[in-house]
Each structure stands twice: as C-alpha cells, then as structure tokens.
Nucleic acid binder design. Structure first.
Length: 273
DNA sequence: AACCAGGTCTCGA
DNA sequence: TCGAGACCTGGT
C-alpha cells in the first residue's frame, strides 16, 4: 500500500510504543493485538499480517496532515528552532494505540529504564496473553489479569504490581469508559484518568495523546523537561511546564512533543561520538 | 558491582 | 498547588 509522509524508523523508535522491534530491516510488532511485519521503501509500505489496510491507516493516523500540523504549530509558536526540529524529522507520526494496552503499559513505565519496561510487558504477555506462535503473545485482556492476580507477582513488576492489577480490575469491571474519555475534552479526560490507580499526570498525558486522540496533550518526562528548559526556557512543576508548552505549541502540542523528544535523543546520541 | 531509573503516592506547608 | 522522600528490582 501507499502511505505518504511516514517514516517508520522515526515513528516506531521515538518511544511511544513498546512492542515494536526492528529485525534486519523489518519492523515487527502488533496492530489490533495481531502480529504484523512492515517493510518500507519510500511511500511503498509492505504489510504482512492479519490486518486490513484500514487498520494500518488507523494505526498510523494517516488522516493527520503533517503539512497542516506543522503550519499550525509554527503559527502558534513562531519559533525558528521549532521549524528546524519539525522539518528535520518529518515523517514522524503519532500512532493510535489501544487505550487499555496503552494505559496498562504506561502504568508499568514508572521509575524504570525502557529495557526493563519492555521486559515487564513481555512477562505480562507471556503470563496472561494468548500464544500466537513464533514466540509471540498477545497483550492480555483485563479480565485475564483480574481473574488471576497472583500470576502477576512473577512478572517482575515490583511496586507497580498492585496498581497494575487494581487498574485491570477496574477496566474489567467496566469502571473505565475509554470511549467517553475520548469524546470529552482534554482537561477533563486527564482529570478522570489521574483518579485511577497508577496513573499520574504524565501517564494520563501519554494515554490521552497515544490512545485517546487528544493531540494537545503534552507529556512531560525527564527528557522533555530538560529540553523545554534548554530550548525554550520553560521550567517548573509538571503543571507549569505542561501548561506553558501547550500554550506555546497550540492544538497539536503532542506532535511537537514527539518531534522534540526525537530531536533531543538523536542529538544526544550524536554527541556521544 | 554498585547505581539509578518515560513516575506515582503520600504527607506537610 | 508544591516539594520532599520513599519506592521494587533489573539492566548496564
């Protein structure tokens, strides 16, 4: 299939997803919880796996017009540094993740390095998920975890275990309405999410942005915190940095966030040589 | 072989 | 609201 304005490497290695890997030129991961392999040459995208073209377009948010989004961010910020960062990393796209998997994963992503996050998620999939063959497992439905909370203890989740299980219970019990969260406005969505176990301001922003279509969400992790101070002189509490950044970048602040994250990480990598 | 981490929670000011 | 301290444990 043909997909414009998509750079697989930038999109899948900028830290928004945890279950994608590049193996000899091929990107292997999941869409709709099914194994998918991707190969890209320019605009041509070869997809193998039990998913439709529509699934792929939905995942990569191909309706998001990067040209328009860049324009909007530039009108809002009017900053040359931003322009350079956006154009230097064009093709990076936000992806649309499943809300349950996204929130459950980010609950595990607290106070640990990324490699360990991936290990924890892998353990959870192996313990509760469906065996899909070739050593790959699906991300388990919340009911699987709620039905056997003991099995979570051997997944190496540490102090996140309780939060993770309790959250799974609530989702399984229908206490979390992701569709409603998607429909309501960003600020209220965050407010609701933060009231759930294991979800603080940062995770709430990640879920809002990566799974619930709130493109103005602006997750502030340690890296973004440093970048915002360095590049734009924005610092302070989470709320302060989040609010000022959204003010600076506008309705698509979330896209700006991903671009800044990738830019900063690439620059840090280059600097190590 | 110690060290430290995509943050959340709790509590006091 | 804000800041400070505690927090499992495994990659590096």
């Amino acid at each position: 299939m043909i997909v414009e304005d998509l750079d697989l490497d930038r999109t899948l290695s900028c830290g928004q997803v945890f279950r994608w890997r590049k193996e000899d030129g091929l990107w292997k991961g999941f869409m709709r919880n099914r194994p998918v392999t991707l190969r890209q040459n320019g605009c041509e995208l070869d997809v193998s796996g039990d998913v439709t073209e529509e699934d792929v377009r939905r995942f990569f948010r191909t309706d998001d017009d990067l040209g328009l989004i860049f324009q909007d961010i530039m009108i809002s910020s009017g900053d040359e540094t931003v322009s350079m960062i956006l154009n230097g990393n064009r093709g990076l796209r936000l992806v649309r993740q499943d809300p349950w998997e996204c929130s459950a994963s980010y609950i595990l992503a607290t106070f640990v390095h990324i490699p360990r996050i991936e290990t924890m998620i892998g353990n959870v999939c192996r313990a509760y998920g469906e065996d899909l063959g070739n050593g790959s497992f699906s991300f388990p439905a919340p009911g699987r975890i709620a039905g056997d909370p003991e099995a979570a203890r051997s997944c190496g989740l540490g102090f996140r275990c309780e939060r993770f299980v309790e959250f799974a219970r609530m989702v399984d019990g229908g206490e979390v309405d992701f569709d409603a969260l998607r429909e309501m406005e960003y600020e209220r969505c965050v407010k609701e999410l933060v009231s759930l176990p294991g979800i603080g301001e940062k995770v709430a922003d990640c879920v809002s942005l990566f799974a619930l279509d709130h493109l103005e969400a602006f997750p502030v992790d340690v890296w973004i915190k440093r970048s915002m101070k360095h590049l734009f002189g924005i610092e302070g509490s989470y709320k302060a940095v989040n609010a000022r950044s959204r003010m600076l970048f506008g309705s698509y602040a979330g896209y700006a966030q991903e671009y800044i994250f990738l830019h900063t990480r690439n620059r840090a990598k280059a600097l190590r040589r």
